[in-house]
Design a protein around this nucleic acid. Structure first.
Length: 861
RNA sequence: GGGCGCGUAGCUCAGCGGGAGAGCGCUUGCUUCACACGCAAGAGGUCGCAGGUUCAAAACCUGCCGCGCCCACCA
């Protein structure tokens, strides 16, 4: 039989190596269009080409594979579309680092050579992460794999840009942007992460130009006073009313700075007067615009001081300048106070963690969001898009409400170059194809904008650019809108919201129906996994050590969308491995008796079989509902409970006798095989490899990957069988419990009360096997079972245990009885609850009597 | 400053109006012919604190304490 070649330990590596290539080869993951089947589609959140698979990816991909595999088994035309993101800054930084090893900067070799290097790097190392995704068993359609800078997607980017440009949704403007002095590029607001740091709050005085006094101002970046061009106060602030219109004198260069009134000033903060640095603070920029104050740029691209600052500060980096300016003010007697440390929130680059500088960097491209955001908000409000968990919809809505125009130009080389050209006559135009001449005047003296687009500009097109947009393709018609997007909450705004906006604007419909937002993977004590903390668990190590199924099951087991933090410990993955091994061995046992083939149910079933079918039916319902609702933790738990605690511990154990019997073997084996085969199908989305490996040995069909999702069999629900079987279970458990308190030599002889004879006798042999005891029946006066032990032998621990149990039972009974004696309970509680309490009391009374009788038996023995 | 989430067994968490649960860990006993990656029997919890609503609260409301996160141009 097939079991003979099954070792006692499941070998995940062998199964993974055998099945994944087979699945690919047979094209199971390939979606066909057009198709008569209902479509089901997920686009993968594209990982960075530079990336390596971490636990976050493993979780994200596991969840997607679970819903995708279930959909495929449900007979849907299923597409899980994979790919990678060019990841502008991230990739450019990697290539620059390589160059630096050769002593070169990117500007040394020029744009074209640099891009060649970048592409070469991408070709050589860029596929790493997709190989790693495959190791998880992900059922992606690799024939449709995409890259955000491949030809098709690049065209989609250009078409999207030009359409938005011509529609007035993309414009070029000069204003303050978030500047990263390390990466030397602009960043969008979403790419800036605010973090509390310990800085300083310095208050100093500006002397009035007419010598009549001072105005004090406070700042956390005192070096910016070199670029101050005014002072602002609130118009209703009586302290300063008389000063508006006057001016102060700059202590270092003698410039006169006018004092203006502006409602943006909060009179209750600091001194109530604000220094205005229009070129280096967005607030001040606005004030300056309203008051007509000039801009004065004092920082270079690397944030060192430059421009019209006094000689002594020129060339200093911003932090040294901060100290130098403070010391100079102190020397001049203008320093009022310095609060240090002063905790306040400062923006950092999401890539390199540098402190962001609000900066003027020539003209930048922006997306005007006003017309985009309302449809995107509406889609979530009217249910066209559903967030899971639902609470994210509010965050989403409020974020969109406050959204400001999106800066999309980046001063990088790696990325989609902005498809706008300028001619020497000052014309500007956008084009989807590289033009030969100016679209306005025909001049051939044209030059393309040097900047590239924010990497998220192409990412936002992902759900439709990957399906062929802007062409009206079969894939796009079939799979758009996609079914569900699975992502972590950290990119809800950066990515998800923008896909919704652009999808609705460019394609005319939402990009996906459900948005499943899962938590972030943490270490066991809830900390982020990071190299510097040394707490990283590498998913590939785990796959190698315990198998992909073990990792997937461990991740699924905790993947409740409600959970924000998902602590992963190696023990959990080990537990997943143990579970796979348990199932493997269950199959090993069964396959000694089962000849193989599609299992069928016999006409007549034993109690154990009816119980098992009934419990299995519960499991089918639970798993199906759980996955439907993205409750992967519930699905995993239901499967583990059924397979381990019910199928193995009771189903197989009870049937061992029949499996050993010549006449009964076949019937018993086919029921067990029928249940196992269906349960394997239920488990397959979570543990694809071990389920396929066993399914093949059962000989149930071509591949479990394309086997149908188990349909419900409500006729198998059998409350009567469950109740009778529970009785049997309690007799067995009672005997074992008594045995555990006695020395081994006294465990062998047990009597069971006559009252249980009818229920136990038909299974006498099984109960004997499960308890390793001789059984006889006797009148035990209400006790369930009794060990035959010498007169006066003390089963102390079990007596103690039963005594405590009885005590607890009586407490509960008292509480219930008091409840039933309570007038207001009887009159106000719903009748079915009252009835339920009555039944409880009845049941508990029975338990009480039995426990008392058992104590009696223990006492007299 | 605004918002969200979480405090339940040693650990990680589920339960979210009428019997305190799971996995891991722990204790004890088992080379039982599927599995020691196992089997069996157990121990362990004033459900963060204080009020309130209710016949009934771990669950609902209010406040407090303690963690964590997101958003935000208070110099």
């Amino acid at each position: 039989m097939q079991a003979t070649d099954m070792p006692s330990q499941y070998d995940p590596t062998a199964a993974e190596g055998r099945w994944y290539p087979t699945w690919i080869e047979r094209g199971y993951f390939h979606a066909e269009t057009p198709s008569d089947r209902p479509p089901y589609c997920i686009v993968i959140p594209p990982p960075n080409v530079t990336g390596r698979l971490h636990m976050g990816h493993a979780l994200n991909d596991t969840i997607q594979d679970i819903v995708v595999r279930r959909a495929r088994m449900q007979g849907k035309e299923t597409l899980w579309l994979p790919g990678t993101d060019h990841a502008g800054i991230a990739t450019q930084v990697v290539v620059e680092r390589e160059l630096r090893k050769e002593g070169l900067e990117r500007r040394d070799i020029g744009r074209e050579a640099f891009l060649e290097r970048a592409w070469a790097w991408k070709e050589q190392y860029g596929g790493e992460i997709t190989r790693q995704i495959k190791a998880l068993g992900a059922s992606c359609d690799w024939d449709r794999e995409r890259f955000t800078m491949d030809d098709g997607l690049s065209r989609a980017v250009r078409v999207a840009f030009v359409r938005m440009y011509e529609d007035g949704l993309i414009y070029r403007g000069e204003r303050l942007i978030n500047w990263c002095p390390t990466d030397q590029t602009a960043l969008s607001d979403s790419e800036v992460e605010h973090q509390e740091i310990e800085g300083e709050l310095v208050t100093f005085r500006y002397p009035l130009a007419d010598g009549s006094g001072h105005v004090a101002v406070a700042t956390t970046r005192v070096e910016t006073m070199l670029g101050d061009t005014g002072i602002a106060v609130h118009p209703d602030d009586d302290r300063y009313r008389d000063l508006v219109g006057k001016s102060v004198r700059h202590p270092f260069d003698g410039r006169e700075l006018p004092i203006v009134a502006d409602r943006a000033v909060d009179p209750s903060f600091g001194t109530g007067a604000v220094k205005v640095t229009p070129a280096h603070d967005p607030n001040d920029f606005d004030i300056a615009e309203r008051a007509g104050l000039p801009l004065m740029n004092i920082l270079g691209p690397d944030a060192s001081l430059t421009g019209a600052v006094p000689e002594e500060f020129r060339g200093l980096d911003r932090f040294s300048a901060r100290t130098r300016v403070r010391e100079r003010l102190k020397g001049l007697g203008l320093l009022v106070s310095e609060d240090r440390p002063y905790r306040h929130s400062v923006g950092h680059c999401y890539r390199c963690r540098s402190v962001i500088e609000p900066w003027l960097s020539g003209k930048q491209w922006f997306v005007a969001v006003e017309r985009l955001k309302e449809p995107a908000r509406g889609a979530a409000r009217d249910g066209r898009i559903r967030f899971v968990p639902e609470r994210w919809s509010r965050n989403y809505d409020e974020w969109l409400e406050g959204l400001r125009d999106w800066n999309i130009s980046r001063q990088l080389w790696w990325g989609h170059r902005i498809p706008v050209w300028y001619c020497t006559d000052g014309h500007e135009f956008a084009a989807t194809e590289d033009p030969e001449k100016c679209a306005h005047c025909g001049s051939t003296e044209i030059e393309q904008d040097p900047d590239v687009l924010d990497t998220w500009f192409s990412s936002q097109l992902w759900p439709f650019s990957t399906l062929g947009w802007p062409d009206d393709t079969e894939d796009l018609r079939t799979f758009y809108p996609t079914s569900v997007l699975v992502t972590a909450y950290e990119i809800l705004y950066l990515w998800v919201a923008r896909m919704i906006m652009s999808g609705m604007y460019l394609v005319g419909d939402v990009p996906f129906r459900d948005v499943v937002i899962h938590g972030l993977v943490r270490d066991r004590s809830g900390r982020k996994m990071s190299k510097s903390l040394g707490n990283v668990i590498d998913p590939l190590d785990m796959v190698a050590k315990y198998g992909a199924d073990a990792l997937r099951f461990a991740l699924a087991r905790m993947a409740s969308p409600e959970q924000q933090n998902l602590p992963v410990a190696e023990e959990a993955i080990e537990a997943g491995r143990n579970f796979a091994n348990k199932i493997w061995n269950a199959a090993r046992l069964l396959l000694r008796a089962y000849p193989g083939g599609s299992p069928t149910l016999p006409e007549r079933l034993t109690l154990t079989e009816r119980w098992l079918l009934s419990r299995h039916e519960v499991c089918v319902g639970e798993v199906d509902a759980a996955i439907e609702e993205y409750r992967f933790d519930d699905a995993a738990q239901a499967l583990q409970r059924f397979l381990w605690s019910e199928y193995c511990d009771w189903g197989l154990e009870m049937q061992k006798g029949r499996l050993a019997s010549e006449e009964e073997r076949s019937g018993a084996a086919s029921v067990l095989a029928w249940v196992l085969e269906r349960t394997l199908r239920l488990l397959h989305p979570l543990m694809p490899f071990v389920t396929e490996e066993i399914w093949q040995r059962l000989g149930a069909g071509e591949s479990i990957v394309v086997a149908p999702w188990p349909e419900p069999h409500p006729e198998h629900e059998d409350a009567g069988a469950e109740a009778s079987f529970r009785d049997l279970q309690s007799v067995v458990t009672e005997i074992r419990s008594l045995q555990s308190a006695a020395p081994p030599e006294l465990r062998g002889k047990v009597s069971v009360d006559e009252a249980w004879r009818d229920r136990v006798e038909p299974f006498l042999a099984d109960v004997r096997r499960l308890t390793a005891a001789e059984l006889s029946f006797a009148d035990l006066r209400g006790a369930m079972a009794k060990l035959s032990i010498p007169e006066g032998f003390d089963l102390g621990p079990i007596v103690e245990q039963k005594r405590r149990k009885l005590e607890g039972l009586r407490d509960r009974l008292d509480r219930k009885r008091a409840k039933l004696a309570n007038e207001s309970f009887l009159s106000k509680a719903p009748p079915e609850v009252v009835e339920g309490e009555r039944r409880d009391v009845e049941h508990l009374e029975g338990e009480e009597a039995r426990l008392a009788a058992e104590l009696e038996q223990l006492g007299t023995s």
